[in-house]
């Protein structure tokens, strides 16, 4: 079960005076069970790319295959693809429409033509996965808090039980607490269900701690594609396209430049702590206190 993009190009407004090449020769494969971060500055083509993944827009050139079959060939079951590749748009809470949370989550599986019990089972499971308590099932989705609304909307896509879940900027407009909650929950559900997750973001900080592979986009191209530590080695190139490496990586790069023998590949706070301690030759005598301080700093 893999989704494959081969030399996909997409041009906006091909028949106007200002055609925009939003995607340029993109090759990408999304295998089973991978946690991928898709990163790029505003206008780099992330959202356009994401809409290709479930056949919402048709590439100007190139092809997209799902299990080896071209999704744009005649008679391809689009509905099946859309249930297999769940796409959560930016601000998904703007798509809520039902009178209560539970029915809204049922909308997706209902459209798949599943029997009633199955629909309800899936909706219940999806709401559990995103941590919406049962007390809220009967409430109007418009009465929920911002973070709850967003989670309910994500549940609406999850209830279709996709093999690949694509989330376009799921943390946009949320406060830091809501952001951490959502990201933590996505990581949790990835672990629990084993589906592939593509997390679209413009912030390295958001994804560095969770994903196993990072795809960096810039001006419609894929700039880098690899493990976070590999990608973060290209600190300068990333900064040139308006992206920053995570703060810890930045600190390690600076320490290294200042002559400390630290391993600049570390991407998380504990890894960074270990390599800094090693570089200091164990001269640090308050590891417990140090850990606390580091943790605090990261949150700022």
């Amino acid at each position: 079960m893999a989704l494959k993009l081969e030399h996909v190009t997409y041009i906006y407004g091909a028949d106007t005076q200002l055609p925009v090449r939003a995607l340029d020769d993109i090759c990408l494969e999304i295998p089973d069970g991978q946690f991928i971060g898709l990163i790029g500055h505003t206008g780099s083509g992330k959202s356009t790319l994401v809409q290709h993944l479930n056949g919402l827009i048709r590439p100007s050139q190139g092809r997209i295959t799902w299990n080896g079959r071209d999704i744009w060939e005649a008679g391809f079951p689009k509905k099946e693809l859309r249930s297999s590749v769940g796409l959560v748009f930016q601000y998904p809470e703007h798509q809520l429409f039902e009178a209560d949370v539970f029915s809204d989550v049922c909308f997706g599986p209902n459209n798949l033509g599943l029997p009633r019990e199955e629909v309800q089972k899936r909706a219940r499971r999806a709401l559990e996965l995103v941590g919406i308590p049962e007390a809220l099932y009967g409430q109007s989705p418009f009465e929920l808090s911002g973070g709850q609304k967003r989670r309910a909307a994500i549940a609406g896509v999850l209830a279709m039980e996709p093999k690949i879940l694509v989330l376009d900027e799921p943390t946009a407009g949320l406060d830091p607490k809501g952001r951490d909650e959502i990201l933590g929950q996505i990581a949790g559900l990835k672990k629990e269900t084993g589906i592939s997750v593509v997390l679209v973001s413009h912030s390295m900080e958001d994804v560095a701690n969770y994903v196993e592979r990072i795809v960096v986009m810039s001006q419609g191209h894929i700039l880098f594609d690899g493990e976070p530590r590999q990608v973060f080695r290209h600190k300068r190139e990333l900064e040139e396209v308006g992206l920053a490496v995570p703060q810890v990586t930045d600190i390690l790069h600076r320490l290294s430049a200042a002559g400390f023998a630290v391993d600049t590949d570390a991407t998380t706070v504990p890894e960074a702590r270990d390599t800094i301690l090693k570089a200091l030759g164990g001269k640090w005598d308050g590891p417990a206190a140090g850990r606390g301080a580091m943790g605090e700093k990261e949150k700022c």
């Binding site: 809409q51 748009f89 703007h94 459209n111 896509v157 279709m160």
Partner: peptide, 8 residues
């Protein structure tokens, strides 16, 4: 598009 993605 969002609703089509949910099978509408």
């Amino acid at each position: 598009k969002a609703q089509i993605a949910r099978g509408a």
